[in-house]
């Protein structure tokens, strides 16, 4: 079983469009959306939710005003500026370290377990799909991402699937690292702009750090062919295979509006390009 992750560094370069296409083209697979913060893949896969599970993670401090003597030891100890002047904990700022509860001489602070979001196992016409929704303003520590990946891996094993196709989050922090560590291949999607290249390079460095092989796809390559050439040179110098160049095409926009993978709507050379990318991903 091979795990294939689609990432980009910069957001909005076309991760989810490519993941949707790979999900439609790959045989015998399970899909996972590891962008638990702003999940979008479900908009293309039209899932029927079969299981929903709350995700418990970390804790938040709660001060009991009846016991609180307003001595201020909690707010003095808190490094996260989470205790207000009238001794109420701001759950958005609280990182759950529990130091306030330990230093409170009145025993007025308790740590309450936190529901950080939900995760789902769904059925789609392309196969099983594991996805999640992080609660608003919650910590995206990578734990929910790890949960989604692990569940997708277990389903893939039980169904003897050949591939797990993973839509990754933007950035290079916790959730990206949790998505990246241990996958068989990372497909980086970039576009011909200086900022997208800048970000793609940082993701290449990250993948190197975790010893994950990478391949690169340029989306909307014809927006600026000169910059696309620079990307080709960058790939050559870093020995990263450039496995596809997707043109700017209304059909891509229309497929997103219709809520389906682009390969369902594309034909001719556009569809050929996605098939070529899939062949390069699997080889």
């Amino acid at each position: 079983m091979k795990q294939i992750l689609v990432i980009s560094g910069k957001g909005g370069t076309g991760k989810t469009v490519l993941t949707g296409a790979l999900a439609a083209l790959a045989p015998n697979k399970v899909m996972a959306d590891c962008d638990v913060d702003a999940a979008n893949l479900y908009l293309l896969l039209n899932p029927s939710i079969r299981e929903k599970h709350p995700f418990q993670s970390g804790a938040s401090a709660v001060i009991d005003p009846a016991l609180c003597s307003r001595c201020g030891q909690c707010s003095a100890a808190c490094r996260f500026d989470a205790v207000s002047r009238d001794f109420v904990v701001n759950p958005i700022a609280c990182e759950g370290c529990g130091l306030c509860a330990r230093v409170c001489p009145a025993g007025a602070v308790t740590m309450k377990e936190n529901t950080a979001g939900d995760w789902f196992v769904s059925e789609t016409r392309y196969g099983p799909f594991v996805h999640a929704k992080l609660g608003l303003a919650e910590e995206n520590s990578g734990k929910l991402v790890a949960k989604v990946r692990e569940t997708a891996g277990e389903i893939a094993e039980s169904k003897a699937a050949d591939y797990v196709i993973i839509d990754g989050p933007p950035g290079i922090g916790c959730p990206v690292i949790a998505s990246l560590s241990g996958v068989d291949l990372a497909v980086i999607v970039t576009e011909p702009s200086l900022s997208a290249i800048h970000d793609a390079e940082r993701v290449m460095d990250l993948a190197k750090h975790f010893e994950v092989p990478v391949k690169l796809v340029v989306n909307k390559w014809d927006i600026n062919p000169a910059v696309t050439e620079d990307i080709q040179k960058l790939c050559d110098s870093r020995h990263v295979p450039l496995i596809g160049q997707i043109p700017f095409d209304r059909v891509v926009v229309e497929s997103v509006l219709a809520g389906e993978p682009v390969t369902e709507r594309a034909d001719g050379s556009l569809k050929e390009e996605f098939i070529k990318i899939w062949e390069a991903v699997r080889s």
Partner: peptide, 9 residues
């Protein structure tokens, strides 16, 4: 033998 957080389930 594996990366971080591999055994999460």
């Amino acid at each position: 033998s594996v990366g971080s957080k591999s055994g999460m389930s």
